[in-house]
Design a protein around this nucleic acid. Structure first.
Lengths: 140, 140
DNA sequence: CCTTGACCTTCCAGCCGCTGGAAGCTCCAT
DNA sequence: ATGGAGCTTCCAGCGGCTGGAAGGTCAAGG
């Protein structure tokens, strides 16, 4: 199976599959013409990574999870640790965003939103009303 | 006021202040020795940006907000639009993360987390249990 | 047999918002 | 005069891809 079909089978883009190879995450075979070739085992791994990524696991976590996936003798505790740590990060992130949401929604609610220049949002940003979280979140 | 003091006064790092200059966001004066020099107006702008960033506004939003900040005749509606749009992004992000949280916490809860290899988390990642969001979030 | 076009290959650059580090300059206190 | 702190510029790297250029390969149709 060449990379285009592998892409369709996994929900990843060919670019992403090549990228995963370049970082030694999932490496397919090669045909004599230089084309990549993916067997079922590769497809399973790629799909595994796709799912882990869609749950927000980092590439590094995926690496760990893949090696546990391959390991017949793994302890489920190891998997659970990785997942729980990630879950905690997500929960922390949610809390952080909820803080922002609260501050912002207060500001937005109190802004008339008309043609006049007076604006509590601007006042908030100019003044010392805001004591937000230290780490600025990124929205993507 | 040189860049180090400006950094202390604004909560930004000197690096960040230089970066903001490099992207034409906030530009200070220069002394004859080449050192940057910041007056009160610059400090206010930098602090404004610092607060906007800590609320999660993008640099581009900051650019817009700064120009509204400078504009005596702005309509508060314009500010409100920027803020509301950002608020909506935050809310969308929260919803997305809550989806992940739910999926992940189910998986984690059902994993024994002992020395045996059987693991519902792995089953979830290998199988088709997960139909997560399309856009993978980033946690930072 | 030749062309077309879809696929494949590699490599380099860019996204965001900084941050680290190197190399070199200036200033101030001793 | 010297040392060290702080300033300057420039380049590279973080994560996780994505876009695009330049070129090789393959299968179908004329």
């Amino acid at each position: 199976m060449n990379i285009g079909d592998a892409a369709k089978a996994t929900g990843l883009s060919p670019k992403t599959i090549r990228y995963y190879e370049s970082i030694d995450l999932v490496i397919g075979d090669r045909l004599t013409n230089g084309y990549r070739d993916y067997a079922d085992a590769h497809i399973h791994k790629l799909r595994f990574v796709q799912r882990a990524r869609s749950l927000g696991f980092s590439i590094d976590d995926c690496r760990t999870l893949l090696s546990l996936y391959e390991d017949q003798n793994r302890a489920s505790a190891e998997v659970k640790n990785v997942a729980r740590k990630h879950l905690e990060e997500i929960e922390a992130k949610i809390a952080e965003l909820q803080d922002l949401q609260e501050t912002l929604s207060h500001l937005v609610e109190h802004c008339a939103g008309d043609e006049r220049p007076d604006c509590p949002i601007m006042d908030g940003l100019s003044g010392t009303l805001i004591e937000g979280p230290k780490n600025v979140p990124k929205i993507h």
